[in-house]
Design a protein around this nucleic acid. Structure first.
Lengths: 209, 209
DNA sequence: AAAACTATACACCATATTGGGGTAAATTCT
DNA sequence: AGAATTTACCCCAATATGGTGTATAGTTTT
């Protein structure tokens, strides 16, 4: 069923890593590294010619940062699969890359076989990630277990964060508008804030909602 | 380094599946299925005695739904790892389970070896998921590529969704308050809405922000 | 049983915010 | 050059917000 060759482009400023990956991938029959670049800009310029199915890219690059590169590449060819390959595992970068459009995120510490696995995984419609990154991603869905807010207060704050007014919240929760105000007063006190925006910001940061 | 036996609890109403899993896992030296239940309620009751390291659970169960079960279990023992094993792959359930506290989500169509892989993955601090689910999870971070909103409008709407007022938004973007109003008017027109709450709701649903 | 917390509800008040109407110049992209 | 985007301004009325303060019924914890 797989008779088509998978066209791969590499964007990586470390020449050793870049050439090592290319050599490895080219040694496999169904993969073909059509080009490899040191800068996003060059990869972008040649996107139309290279016609890659998959791009492997680093984030720290000379010139344009990889995050922006991902955004631009996905804008050009939305269906293209991008796998980030970097040394950094800090959550900010990971989420930025995923938001920008990356479909996978593995670390350079990964050995060759897991690189190949990642590419197979992408081809199978998956989203390859290292264990730690997968866990980070999954945990990003979970709320802070020891929130200072009660269940009701959390509900109120959740609706507030959806832009709803006190009156609308009171209607949706079947309580009096003044009750909503009371809850909000308590929320502000507990979070030590004095406005909607501060409360939402703090709640999002601490994953209370 | 792994000399401790991993204690596993299974919650699954299909007796064949439940006993099959238990048999398989017990056949491996370092795993021990301490108990298996048909209902969440029973698993919860015996949590303290069972002292599981990992719980495998189905979502469709007689009595309490698995999603609520996960919440309660995590409330009791926050560090416990729960792997959901179900036939359903629809996004709503997946995200609900992850939000409730599941650390992994695989489908029953998975073969035995991938079940074992999942357990190893969890023990290694990862988050086992099937390819399709991993992709769904990763895609949940990504915005709708063809948003009707301009870049600036998206920025404004993003700040609005954080509860910020027109004045605060204008300060943060270094533009006049009236300009913010103009953007918001255009946003409302494009999204065909007439209030902040509607705009945010629609934007979240269509992943414009 | 007492104490603490939670959810509920109400009043008053000044200020800020919002949404609707309109217009229009400067800038950037195609 | 024309289109789209971003910027900025005016008027106005209704609504929302945040800060006071009080109070009661129910639940949970000690």
């Amino acid at each position: 069923m797989e008779n088509k060759i998978t066209r791969i482009v590499i964007v990586e400023d470390n020449e050793v890593v870049k050439d090592g990956f290319a050599l490895l991938l080219n040694s496999i029959e169904e993969y073909h590294v059509v080009n490899s670049y040191v800068k996003c800009e060059d990869a972008l310029k040649n996107l139309k010619n290279d016609q890659p199915d998959i791009i492997l890219m680093d984030l720290e690059l000379p010139g344009m940062h990889g995050i922006e590169g991902i955004q631009r590449i996905k804008k050009e060819i939305p269906d293209l699969n991008i796998i980030v390959i970097t040394v950094h595992e800090d959550s900010e970068l990971v989420f930025q890359a995923l938001c920008a459009g990356a479909s996978g995120y593995i670390t350079k510490t990964a050995n060759y076989s897991s690189l190949l696995e990642a590419i197979n995984e992408i081809k199978a419609g998956g989203a390859p990630m290292s264990s730690r990154i997968a866990r980070m991603v999954v945990e990003s869905f979970q709320k802070n277990q020891d929130s200072p807010l009660t269940k009701r207060e959390t509900e109120v704050l959740e609706l507030l964060s959806k832009g709803k007014s006190y009156s609308i919240i009171s209607e949706e929760l079947f309580i009096h508008k003044e009750t909503v105000k009371s809850h909000i007063k308590n929320i502000y006190f507990k979070l030590q804030v004095h406005s909607k925006a501060e409360a939402i910001e703090k709640a999002l940061k601490e994953k209370l909602i």
